[in-house]
Amino acid sequence: MNKQTSQTPLVELRNMSIAFGGVRAVDDVSIDLYPGEVVGLLGHNGAGKSTLIKMLSGAYGADSGEIRINGEKATINNPRDARRYNIETIYQTLALADNLDAASNLFLGRELTSGMGFVDDDAMEAETRKIMNRLNPNFQKFAEPVSALSGGQRQSVAIARAVYFDARILIMDEPTAALGPHETQMVSELIQKLKADGIGIFLISHDIHDVMELCDRASVMKNGKLVDTVDVKDVTDDELLSMIILGKKPGEDAA
């Protein structure tokens, strides 16, 4: 393999399984993530990628399996637990409360408070202005509810929320699905920067080109099972594609 073998993985997902009403949505899947690495999760709709990742982000509790963070067993029962391990998630739906403004969304569940325990909207807006200045300098709509924002602006609020709180493990579920070319470029640059800071990133995507460009390794899922995890530089687009469609490992004949 490569340098990663000498390090402790940031995240180890071991034999993760979950079923919904008899359907095994994720079936005995194991994946590792190292610091400063981007691992792509590929597969059709319903392959189980989002479900797998929701067990890490605390949205679902696993039926069986083990999550280890920095080599130690982690208990993640809800999103608050995940945040305690510095796991931040950018959901495909963005998970924004449309009726609240950018600052309230960014700090939702982790509001800044004044000495008397009251939420300090002005301080939160000031912090939001700072981080947005860095991520998306064009962003100006701080007073409006996020329902009044464009798709790209909403995405940047969701990204700012993950980045602001010093994520060590970042989960991005289809981060570029709703974006134009300019904003997609912004997201790729951000991923490169976070990687350089030693953050581990799970990138869920069904766009092979995104994965080939941004990821170090790719894990392919089909029908809830892991097909294989490969180094992106060792495979071609077509090999990845046949893993997704046929569930076939590279160099192996179709079943």
Binding site: A59, P79, A95, L96, A97, N99, L108, G109
Partner: peptide, 24 residues
Amino acid sequence: TRTRFGRYVYATGGNPEAAELSGI
């Protein structure tokens, strides 16, 4: 307007799933 509880009331009304994912 000034407490976390109040903020969570509005967040939950706006998007219950997002509120849940934010740890509320």
